[in-house]
């Protein structure tokens, strides 16, 4: 059987999701024997050439040249899969979407005019058709290997779309929202992390982004009843998946 060609691409990101590929330590030998790793700049010198059966794309689109680059990746690829919150939702850097980019540039750079950047950081799906999105900040290695295995077997990945609450209940972790009135985003956040924060008695802060059909307005209402101001409620959503949470709430940028 011909091994499928895989490419790993980086846009605006911390590199943590492509590192997750290398963090599959036990599966890595299988990974490189089952796939032809044809492009993976962080791990090898292979030049960009040819077409890919599958591309893993990390990072958001935040510069003009990246807009052209993501179209090129799409054109070279049969199945485009995004990995992580930056690629699926614009990442933490999408906080600029609700601010003045010129302000941001001036704050960081002595010569802001030399910096070329877009006023918004956007998910890959805003630019090209995406075949599958793997959520998380960072992605979960088990989900990554499930997705890659499913690709080889030509089946749909068995990755849940329900909320973190389901995982939490199954693990028998006491509910921070109900028992302690803590601002836990579990009810509106995708499962996938393995209940990391609630297991540490810490409210979920939304690494895996909004689950499908999340009722964000209702959760914010509960937060407000517990004494959080409207501004504090927005800040709870304004993290790595700010763009997706705001969109899933009452529409882009409005609360």
């Amino acid at each position: 059987m011909k091994r499928p060609w895989i490419g790993v691409f980086k846009f605006t990101s911390c590199d943590g999701c492509q590192l997750s590929v290398l963090n599959m330590e036990d599966e890595l030998p299988d990974f490189v024997s089952l796939f032809q790793v044809a492009y993976f700049r962080e791990a090898g010198d292979m030049p960009l050439r040819g077409r890919f059966d599958i591309a893993l794309v990390e990072g958001s689109v935040s510069t003009g040249w990246q807009k052209a680059q993501i179209i090129e990746v799409r054109e070279r690829t049969r199945h485009l899969v995004t990995i992580g919150a930056c690629a699926a939702a614009g990442g933490l850097q999408a906080l600029r979407n609700w601010a003045d980019i010129e302000d941001y540039k001036r704050l960081v750079y002595p010569s802001p005019d030399m910096i070329e950047t877009l006023p918004c950081s956007t998910p890959v799906s805003d630019h090209v058709y995406v075949d599958y999105e793997l959520w998380g900040c960072p992605v979960n290695c088990d989900e990554l290997s499930e997705m890659l295995g499913s690709f080889l077997l030509d089946r749909k990945p068995g990755i849940p779309a329900y909320s973190l609450c389901m995982e939490c209940k199954r693990k028998g972790v006491p509910c921070l929202l109900v028992a302690k009135s803590e601002p836990c985003l579990g009810p509106v956040t995708r499962a996938g992390c393995g209940v990391l924060c609630p297991s540490m008695e810490r409210p979920c802060y939304g690494c895996f982004g909004p689950k499908e059909g999340a009722n964000i307005g209702s959760l914010l209402e509960a937060f407000r009843n517990a004494g959080f101001s409207s501004h504090e409620c927005v800040l709870l959503l304004d993290k790595m998946n700010t763009y997706a949470f705001r969109e899933a709430g009452t529409g882009e940028g409005r609360f």
């Binding site: 990246q66 601010a99 941001y104």
Partner: peptide, 25 residues
């Protein structure tokens, strides 16, 4: 591409800082 961490950290609660800056790398 720059992400402007020093800009969007302004106005955030100190308890967000460790989680946010971790995302630099």
């Amino acid at each position: 591409a720059p992400r402007f961490f020093e800009a969007f950290l302004r106005g955030r609660h100190f308890s967000d800082v460790a989680d946010f800056t971790a995302r630099i790398c």
